Computed example of a mutant assay.
Amino acid sequence: MTSQTPADASDAQPQPGPSTGGAQDTTQPPQGGLPRILKNDPARTGFDPRTAWWVNYFKILTGSITAEGAFHYRESRYRAHEARDCRRCEQWRDWCLAHSPTVTFLRQRIADLGGELDARNVVCRRCPARLTEDGAVHRQSGGFSPDHGVLVCANEIRDRRHLEDTLAHEMVHAWDHLRWKVDWSGDKDLRHAACTEIRASMLSGECRWTREAFTRGNWTLTQQFQDCVRKRAVQSVMARPRCKDDVQAVKVVNQVWDSCFSDTRPFDEVYR
């Protein structure tokens, strides 16, 4: 291992693992006064998990279930289809590990640093989303843990291309960790997390124009790529336990932006 660091960051790390499902009045607010997680109440939302799924679906179509209830309905369907989603995810994962140029390149670069990523530590699981009382929905499509490997959230993956982007994002984190021993939680310096998130969003392909335009509805031509990378980096830094608020997240991303956005290692340039 080397003591050198990526660009301005002296360390870097991403946040692994799925969050837990929601709860309202029975859930205590997390530290820092963050919004409570909402738990389904059929009397309030109109969604009753004891009712047949097609009845609830019809109630959503007719407006008898609130937006909050529709969120909990979606999560219930993910639970019901967990085994199917994981099987499909594993098929796409195996294809990417064997045939994706980006993924196979990153696997080799990770191996060069003494690491190994394969079907044993790239796992597909259902990741529960969280709905908080401020109306925000918190989802993730994957995560990286230095101790366990890469998590791919099977229920959030739309297709094989989406899984390829997600896997590439997490593998950039893995490469950064092996190269620079990133401080994922931000205990030492949140700039580490900011740098690796900038690099992962930039190099994975998740901010390519076609993804932004056709998947997220962002048809902006000028600065689209930079805006996407910056936005996703800020959101990821905000999820770190040591980040106080969005103001701090924006500040640390700005501090490392120039050096980390120009750092394309282990690639020669941004291909995706």
Rank of each mutant, 00 (worst) to 15 (best):
F71Y: 06
A98L: 14
G135W: 02
V137R: 05
D112F: 09
G135H: 03
T66M: 07
G114L: 08
R87D: 07
K59S: 10
L163F: 12
Y73L: 09
T66A: 08
R120V: 12
N56Q: 07
T45V: 02
L106S: 11
F58R: 07
S64M: 09
T45W: 04
R84A: 06
R107H: 10
R139H: 05
Y73S: 01
W95A: 00
R44S: 09
D134F: 08
A119R: 15
Q91P: 01
L131F: 09
D48T: 00
T102V: 12
E75A: 09
L113E: 13
A98R: 15
L131R: 10
E68A: 01
C124D: 04
V150Q: 03
R120G: 11
R84P: 01
V123R: 15
R88L: 10
R93D: 03
R77G: 01
R84D: 14
Y78M: 07
W95R: 08
T51M: 14
G46A: 02
G69K: 01
E156S: 13
T104Q: 14
W54D: 11
I65M: 01
T45I: 06
S145E: 03
G115W: 05
V55W: 12
E156T: 13
W95L: 04
H99V: 09
D48F: 01
R79C: 01
W53C: 02
A70W: 01
A70S: 01
Y73K: 02
D85L: 08
E82N: 14
A70T: 00
R109I: 09
F71A: 00
L106C: 13
R125A: 13
F58D: 02
R139L: 10
G143I: 05
D165C: 06
L113P: 00
D48H: 02
E116D: 14
A154Q: 09
R79S: 11
R109V: 09
C96W: 04
H162L: 03
V55R: 15
A98D: 15
G63V: 02
R161W: 11
H99K: 15
D48I: 00
Y73W: 13
F58P: 00
W92K: 03
H99E: 15
R130S: 14
M171V: 13
G63P: 06
G149I: 03
E156C: 07
C89V: 04
R107P: 02
P128A: 12
C89F: 07
R44L: 10
E133L: 07
T62C: 04
A111Q: 15
G115V: 08
I157H: 07
V55G: 08
I110Q: 05
H148L: 13
K59E: 10
W92Q: 07
V152M: 06
D147Q: 12
R160W: 07
A119G: 14
V103M: 01
L131Y: 05
T104M: 11
H99Y: 12
C127F: 14
V103F: 04
H148W: 15
T102G: 05
A80V: 07
